[in-house]
């Protein structure tokens, strides 16, 4: 027998043996796992094919002699045979050209990957899912959703308990605090609380029961009156200066917002337009969708109920 075949068998046997010992011998066999079986079968096939392909070419190198017609070229003494183009290669080459034509005209322009395209699809899928799942929720579930919106977007200024973190933002557990009322009376207000431009005049245009401009003391009194839930002193000032727009009970009219309690629509208007008051500026939150704003409104309203 040719020595090279003998070496082939020795190498094959030792590699398969090594595989057997390292994989099957020490780990307790295939364990009935199809992946293990396939892996081992693949490894064995690879070893056997490699060894015998190598043997074939080594033998060819040992016995082959160069003959055939040389092309009419010589590169520093290195020549080339005039062999025909291999058929398999030629077929693949032509197929590549056909594929390239398809890719230039159809593949890339029509089906190319785009990061932004994938993003748009993602957003689309999400919006559809949101629509299907949440578009019609009401009541407690809406409040629940509002709480999660609040925790994501609002707590950064208003705090986890919506208390305004010690004056960093409005305390949402009460409708109005005295300093907020006072600021609105002194400076007027124009915060689109009704969803449109509807300026509240400043103190010069707010009159007390005697028909003259409201005084400092009266401002303090009526601010405390509104902040305390329309109890205590100050109802006479309120009736003359405020009630024509905000109503006797503070529930508001078409041209004066509700100052007795929050309503979802009021909160939605603030989220749409932002506001500027005595504490600071609140930005508009237009990245929330309509339902999320409604939910946040429901949650904020529920806090002071």
């Amino acid at each position: 027998m040719n020595k090279i075949y003998l070496w082939g068998f020795i190498v094959t046997a030792s590699m398969l043996g090594f595989t057997y010992v390292s994989v099957l011998g020490s780990k307790g066999g295939f364990n009935g796992d199809i992946v293990n079986i396939l892996t081992i079968a693949g490894a064995a096939a690879l070893v056997i094919i490699t060894v015998f392909v190598v043997i074939k070419y080594v033998r060819q190198m040992q016995t082959d002699t160069a003959d055939g017609e040389l092309v009419n070229e010589s590169w520093d003494g290195i020549g080339e045979y005039l062999n025909p183009v291999p058929m398999g290669w030629a077929i693949i080459y032509l197929m590549t050209m056909v594929w390239a034509m398809w890719y230039f005209t159809m593949g890339y322009p029509v089906q190319s990957y785009s990061q932004i395209g994938e993003y748009n699809e993602d957003v689309d899928v999400h919006n559809k899912k949101f629509e299907a799942k949440y578009a019609s929720i009401t009541g407690d579930r809406l409040v629940e959703m509002g709480e999660s919106v609040f925790l994501a977007e609002c707590k950064i200024c208003h705090g986890l308990t919506a208390d305004g973190i010690d004056g960093t933002a409005s305390n949402l557990n009460v409708r109005l605090e005295a300093n907020v009322v006072k600021n609105a009376i002194v400076n007027g207000s124009n915060n689109n609380l009704l969803g449109m431009e509807m300026p509240m005049p400043n103190r010069e245009f707010l009159f007390n029961a005697a028909g003259s401009a409201i005084t400092d003391a009266e401002i303090d009194t009526v601010s405390a009156y509104v902040a305390n839930g329309f109890t205590g002193k100050g109802s006479d000032v309120y009736l003359s200066a405020c009630a024509s727009c905000h109503k006797e009970n503070g529930m508001g009219t078409d041209y004066g917002p509700n100052i007795a309690k929050y309503t979802p629509q009021l909160v939605v208007n603030v989220l749409n337009h932002g506001k500027k008051g005595v504490i600071g500026t609140m930005p508009a939150f237009n990245r929330l969708n309509a339902k999320q704003k409604e939910a946040a409104g429901a949650y904020v309203t529920s806090l002071s109920e």
Partner: peptide
Amino acid sequence: GNYRTTDW
């Protein structure tokens, strides 16, 4: 700048 303000 879209969602935080000076006072914040």
